[in-house]
């Protein structure tokens, strides 16, 4: 996994102009869906990688539902620690819809950026 090589983040792979164009294109085609980037925290050692990072989420889905979708994608047991963070803070308003969250937290390029992580271990 990442031990052998550094994985560049989505922002590193695509420049700002490209990212803006992506959001504009997709919003034209799918106006009621929210473009989200979900990436694994670079320091994460226990959770698997998602095979994709760019998602379109129906705007009425709640944060709690999205969390379960990602949990399931990663095939996690309900007792495994899993946190979705946005801007260095855990997303805790679980009943908020993605569209509400998007209004508050979207970035300049029009994407909503989320990072997932578990908990590190201590000796």
């Amino acid at each position: 996994m990442s031990a052998s090589g550094y994985i560049p983040s989505f922002k590193e792979r695509k420049n700002l102009a490209e990212r803006i164009r992506m959001v504009e294109d997709i919003k034209r085609q799918q106006p009621d869906k929210i473009p989200i980037i979900i990436e694994r925290y670079e320091g994460e050692r226990y959770l698997p990688l998602l095979d994709k990072c760019k998602y379109l989420v129906p705007n009425h889905i709640t944060v709690a539902e999205l969390m379960q979708i990602v949990r399931r994608r990663l095939q996690l047991h309900p007792d495994q620690a899993f946190f979705l963070l946005l801007n260095e803070k855990s997303i805790v308003s679980n009943s908020m819809t993605i569209s509400q969250l998007y209004q508050m937290e979207q970035e300049q390029d029009g994407f909503l950026y989320m990072v997932y992580a578990s908990q590190p271990t201590f000796g």
Partner: peptide
């Protein structure tokens, strides 16, 4: 409940040729 949302994917090594396409979560 989420059977309707998702099908299982294989988790291979990530390839980033998918950057151009969005994955629709529904």
């Amino acid at each position: 409940l989420f059977e309707v949302f998702l099908e299982f994917d294989d988790f291979g090594d990530p390839t980033f040729n998918s950057d151009e396409e969005f994955e629709v979560l529904m």
